[in-house]
């Protein structure tokens, strides 16, 4: 800041009528939230990590063993780092409003807070699916690679596992936003997101007498058939629904309630 600029403020046009000013459309809010989700340095580093992890697991999968790896197995390989780390992008995009204190600006530019929550959910799911498509693309290249270089037999079939993975990525992205909204703190939300499945997992191991109950309560347990391409009957879907209600629906409801009513407080 060297010279103080003496340029006068742009003249306010007295002729402007209020009719020209329309509410911010949801589409525009969503595009801005999307840009906010992706334009920070923290998120770019996260993408670098995801890219490196993906490159690593693809290389290992392609080189280790006989190299006869199907397209869908590669999809499972490439989408795993994504599924683990992309929800942190959703968490960061949400909690930054409080940890970086941008909520003051966000909610004065759009006081209808529910719409901001909606835009964050939509952009999180959108990013989840978009990057999953990228992961599928990388898997295709990898499969071409092993077919050409390691004499693998072409197997381009995609089935339940791919669909299940896509569904779970959507759920995990929503969960990231939900944890972010409910906790309004970056470290808390990330720790809870990463630690809770392990802790619950440990408890499921210890309390084996509850083994019939866990699939109804624990999302990690109930999602296993989905991401391993197993078949889901009515019971499995119901278990997925109840466990998702507990681990995704509940924090989302709590977080939305917290944002909707009460004060916008930062730090």
């Amino acid at each position: 800041m060297t010279a103080v600029d003496q340029t006068r403020t742009t003249r306010r046009t007295g002729a402007r009528t209020t009719a020209e000013i329309r509410p911010v459309p949801f589409s525009r809010l969503t595009l801005v939230e999307w840009r906010k989700q992706l334009d920070t340095r923290a998120v770019r580093w996260l993408f670098v990590i995801i890219a490196l992890l993906t490159a690593g697991v693809v290389t290992v999968t392609a080189l280790v063993g006989d190299g006869d790896v199907s397209f869908e197995t590669f999809v499972s390989t490439t989408s795993t780092p994504l599924a683990m780390l992309l929800p942190i992008v959703a968490i960061l995009a949400t909690t930054a409003e409080w940890s970086q204190r941008t909520a003051l600006t966000t909610f004065t530019l759009e006081p209808r807070r529910g719409r901001v929550v909606g835009a964050k959910l939509l952009t999180a799911v959108g990013s989840g699916l978009a990057f999953f498509v990228v992961a599928v693309g990388i898997a295709a290249v990898a499969h071409v690679g092993v077919v050409m270089l390691r004499d693998a037999s072409p197997d381009w079939g995609l089935g339940a596992m791919t669909a299940g993975m896509a569904l779970m990525i959507v759920l995990w992205m929503v969960q990231g936003v939900a944890f972010g909204l409910a906790l309004q703190s970056t470290p808390a939300a990330i720790v809870v997101y990463l630690a809770v499945p392990s802790i619950v997992g440990a408890i499921t191991m210890l309390l084996t007498s509850w083994s019939d109950v866990w699939p109804w309560l624990d999302l990690s347990t109930s999602s296993v058939p989905l991401i391993t391409g197993g078949s889901l009957g009515g019971t499995e879907w119901a278990q997925l629904a109840t466990s998702a209600a507990i681990w995704v629906g509940l924090p989302l409801a709590l977080g939305t309630w917290r944002v909707q009513r009460g004060e916008v407080k930062t730090a």
């Binding site: 209020t18 000013i21 329309r22 509410p23 911010v24 334009d39 920070t40 340095r41 923290a42 930054a96 970086q100 204190r101 941008t102 909520a103 003051l104 600006t105 004065t108 530019l109 759009e110 006081p111 209808r112 930062t266």
Partner: peptide, 25 residues
């Protein structure tokens, strides 16, 4: 009421806390 303004950023300029801006942008 503020919340009833359509696109309030075009009607009201608000600066409540200069530190409340994303450090990474």
């Amino acid at each position: 009421p503020f919340a009833a303004l359509a696109n309030p950023g075009r009607r009201v300029g608000v600066l409540l806390d200069a530190s409340a801006q994303h450090a990474g942008r």
